[in-house]
Design a protein around this nucleic acid. Structure first.
Lengths: 123, 123
DNA sequence: TGACTCCTTCACATGGATGTGAAGGATGCG
DNA sequence: CGCATCCTTCACATCCATGTGAAGGAGTCA
């Protein structure tokens, strides 16, 4: 598909789809006339990227972790340099801390809402 | 305590502590000479703010949700305007999506690391 | 062919979190 | 006192994700 369709299906401005490409997050094919041609799977990929960006990860990190999320089973051992492994462990831990922080604060918000809305069903 | 001590104890540049104040996230007292005076509890508050910022929430939203996280039990019903409740519900849902996205991708990273490191203990 | 829409690249603008430095007042130690 | 170290405010710089617009090529339909 071309950039317009991908843009609509992911709710992402074309400009950003080109930006993600510029940042090395995606690598669409090119048609004979130079138009970008996106694979069907890139729909999910874009949503995944946007989710991670929204969760506070910079494109630099997303670029690093995407390859190992690509094929959950198919491991590319060739890419697994010690630095890469260290980066991944580091990011995994950062994500864990983020998740804990978000969970804790979401719980507090939920409790507040429950109280305010008179919904006293304690989880 | 003064800004220098809070900066050291939270690992946050002084500049940012003033920025958070400027954004209305904290409101330190002032000494006679104009120096900012921070309450002991602000140490945790700052760490909480930084965690939320790191998780992708903007200061604008953090400012809104902080008051209801302040005293988990003590609810300020007076502040609970319908708009505020809607904002909180919206943010709670956004946080839920963020948590899901982070959890999913963290799991994938963990699986990759387990495979690469030859640690085949499936969780 | 003309008109319209989509695509391309290039490039500058914006907003939020953060870095950094200048200029000056307050504190504290020798 | 003199000097170092903290503090203050003001202000400009930077990085990144994103917005936006210009100038032109390509596809489609009348």
């Amino acid at each position: 598909m071309r950039i317009g369709e991908l843009s609509e299906r992911t709710g992402t401005p074309r400009r950003l789809l080109r930006y993600y490409e510029e940042q090395g997050l995606i690598l669409p094919d090119r048609c004979a006339n130079g138009y970008r041609s996106y694979d069907e799977r890139l729909v999910d990929r874009i949503l995944q990227i946007r989710g991670l960006l929204d969760a506070g990860l910079p494109t630099r990190i997303i670029k690093q972790i995407l390859p190992c999320l690509d094929k959950p089973r198919l491991i590319h051992f060739s890419d697994a340099t010690p630095e890469m492994v260290a980066t991944l462990e580091n990011e995994r831990d950062r994500m864990t801390r983020r998740i804990e922080c978000l969970t804790r604060n979401r719980e507090a918000i939920s409790q507040y809402l429950d109280a305010v809305l008179g919904n006293h069903a304690t989880s």
